[in-house]
Design a protein around this nucleic acid. Structure first.
Lengths: 248, 248
DNA sequence: CGAGAGCTTGATGAACATCAAGAGGCGTGG
DNA sequence: CCACGCCTCTTGATGTTCATCAAGCTCTCG
């Protein structure tokens, strides 16, 4: 089998989907034969923009991305952070106009897959379609949880919640463990995601460090007091709908 | 044709889906032959609860409902308001455990449809599956818009935005016009939806009335100054993805 | 006509935003 | 190798938007 990068890209998709529902050989083969183009992007680069009508969606192979929208005078709201294995703009498959933007946070490797192929795949293999649909539903569940944070939680609780969430998401794809994970985002990013000023984020982080709850240096997060964080943030992982399964 | 209430229920679904994508006769027939049970519910009654594993989903025929979650000590976050034609718990089709609750706001008529039938319908008629999927994606788009409000907008902007949104959603199903619509929710509900206290909601409403922007008496909202409201709330209806089409 | 839910008003305080300025890190180019 | 610039983080001072508490009012509906 040739070691070409695009094939590698799709095997990540196979693993991701296989971790949610067992795949048949036929389904596996179908996914692997989907056409895709892999590209390396710089940090801080837009992948799709508010208002675009994309004809492909993207699978993150390496690096981090986020979905966001610019509003008013320089204000920004980040809706989600995305890590390898995610398809952050899957929704564009059925919502033809982007109502927000998607951009990289770090340097990132991304595979582009034509909508046409995704639609065909979903139709020919309804089970794959269901898993993809499900993926967008988990997405929405995370939005709801962020709404709770912004509507009803303190800055401290929101930040703690975000840390727990990102840790679990990373752990689920094998990129974190032992309460350590990469977190290559600025305090500004955290603020824009949680509806806080960067100044206030900074002060909360100081407090967390002062109470020895976390270590956060460079882009490495260590959660030293997991129980405290889930306590203050009322973190309940149900909403992530991570069904533990052996990868296919 | 017999005038039985369940058949009537599904014809609403036909109209709803038909307003998004043109349906073939076969598709129409298939929808109409889906089994469903119609029930009349009181105001303030739960339909599905946080933690449940429902085996059916519901179509609202009449009245209003909302999705919400109770957190901490008596705090509540409302995620969405639902009106006739909505299927508020469609996500339970693929996310088996509810991570929030769904309840009525007013007295409501609701049709219950087995998940099994919905899944079958989606598989046999991929186009219907796509439209349903799309519906959950619009749902998520609305969540994103609410996040912007709670993260980056003033109380005034948030409330104005909610009014514009509900008006357009109601208008799209023929329940509003001429900048008038029903709004059978309390100030407490508005607060719980937007992350505000009922007291503060009250004060903002006073100001809106004082500036002759709206009239809100009983459950009737009149938007007297549409342009002002969309201005202050930076309302852009793109996110509702209302594609104007003649109903099939 | 009474009871309860929702609305209204005032007083007080807390959690945050905003503004401003400086310190530390890190890559880039001379 | 050092110097420069930029980005991020940090810290302080001040101000605003909202929450909270408490009480009285109004409307509706049984």
């Amino acid at each position: 089998m040739p070691l070409d990068p695009d094939h590698h890209a799709l095997s990540l998709l196979v693993r991701k989907l296989g971790s949610i529902a067992a795949l048949t050989d036929g389904e596996r083969q179908a996914i692997l034969s989907v056409p895709s183009k892999t590209r390396l992007l710089n940090a801080g680069q837009d992948i799709v923009r508010d208002g675009d009508k994309p004809s492909q969606c993207c699978l993150i192979l390496d690096g981090w991305a986020c979905r966001y929208k610019i509003i008013g005078e320089g204000k920004r709201q980040i809706f989600s952070f995305h890590i390898p294995g995610d398809i952050p703009d899957l929704q564009s498959l059925h919502l033809h106009t982007m109502d927000h933007s998607l951009g990289t946070i770090t340097q990132a490797t991304v595979a582009f897959i034509p909508h046409e192929s995704m639609r065909e795949l979903s139709t020919r293999f309804p089970r794959i379609g269901e898993v993809l649909w499900r993926d967008t539903l988990v997405d929405a569940a995370i939005f709801r949880e962020w709404m709770i944070g912004m509507g009803r939680k303190s800055a401290f609780g929101r930040i703690a919640h975000l840390f727990c969430e990102m840790y679990l998401k990373l752990e689920a794809v094998g990129l974190a463990g032992e309460h350590r994970c990469p977190l290559p985002i600025t305090q500004m990013d955290i603020g824009d995601a949680l509806g806080l000023s960067n100044v206030h984020v900074n002060r909360v982080l100081q407090e967390m460090r002062g109470r020895s709850l976390i270590t956060l240096r460079g882009s490495a997060l260590v959660i030293q007091a997991w129980d405290v964080l889930i306590g203050v943030s009322e973190f309940d992982p149900t909403y992530l709908h991570l069904e533990k399964r052996a990868a296919g």
